[in-house]
Simulated scan of single mutants.
Amino acid sequence: MRKIPGILIAILMLSISLASYGQSSEDDYALINVYRLKESMMSGGTGLTIKILFNDEEVCQLLTNTKLVYKLHSAGTIKVKCVAEFSGSGIGAPYVETFEFEKGKEYHISLAAGSMTGVKGESISDKKLKKIAQNKFADTIELEEKES
């Protein structure tokens, strides 16, 4: 009978430490998912890269049919700018939107590039997210903002 209270205390301590560990990691950052679905050859987008900038600092460049998963530690008001490029030169109009990113939340942005239009983007609803989730991306880039 004396072994049972010791085992219960050990289980309780383990569950408390796991619960606190899981809780703190979710609140450390906002998770931003950026999707660039495969474009058709007719759109002219397949030969373009999309440069992604947060508050005018380059995060990465996305090719067609690529997904970015980004952990953003400095949540708050962030200007997202996406520019289509061909051989280092800007093409068409950029997509620019200001977001209020909150730590512990997940965000989804869809992008498309065209040689005549530049970049079009939108924040994705749950309905559109289900459709995008069915896509098989050629590559997924996982990055994390450096904490200052």
Rank of each mutant, 00 (worst) to 15 (best):
V59T: 10
S24C: 08
G121D: 02
I4A: 07
R2Q: 13
G90S: 15
S43F: 02
V59N: 12
K127Y: 04
G114T: 02
P94G: 04
I9Y: 04
G104D: 07
D139P: 02
I4M: 09
A112P: 08
K103I: 05
E144T: 03
E39Y: 01
A30F: 01
M41D: 13
G121V: 00
S43V: 04
E106I: 14
K105C: 09
I7M: 09
G47R: 05
K127F: 04
V96Q: 09
G92Y: 00
T77M: 11
M116I: 06
I50F: 09
K146L: 12
I109F: 05
S25H: 14
I4E: 08
E39K: 01
K120G: 11
S74G: 09
S43C: 05
S24V: 15
G118L: 01
F101L: 12
V96P: 05
L129W: 03
D27G: 08
F54G: 10
G118C: 01
I7W: 05
S148N: 15
L68Y: 08
G88N: 07
P5A: 08
Y35H: 03
K81P: 06
Y29K: 06
H108D: 12
I91A: 01
V96L: 06
A133F: 02
A84K: 03
T140D: 04
H108P: 05
E85I: 04
E106D: 11
T49Y: 14
V80E: 15
F101S: 06
Q23M: 13
T66C: 11
S87C: 05
S123T: 08
E145C: 04
I16P: 03
F137R: 02
I124S: 03
T49I: 15
K3V: 13
N135H: 09
K67R: 14
C60I: 15
L18R: 09
F137Q: 00
I91L: 01
H73M: 10
E85P: 01
L8M: 10
D56E: 15
D139H: 10
T140E: 07
G44D: 00
G114R: 00
G6H: 11
H73C: 10
P94V: 07
F54P: 07
E122C: 06
S74A: 14
L63G: 13
R2G: 11
G47P: 06
M13F: 13
S115A: 10
S89R: 14
E145N: 08
H108S: 11
C82K: 00
S148H: 12
G6I: 13
G44W: 00
P94M: 08
L48A: 06
E26P: 03
K81M: 14
Y107E: 05
L111K: 05
D27W: 10
S148L: 11
E58H: 11
E144N: 03
V83Q: 12
L18Q: 10
L68E: 07
I16K: 07
T117N: 08
S110D: 13
S15H: 02
G6F: 13
T140G: 00
G118F: 00
R36W: 01
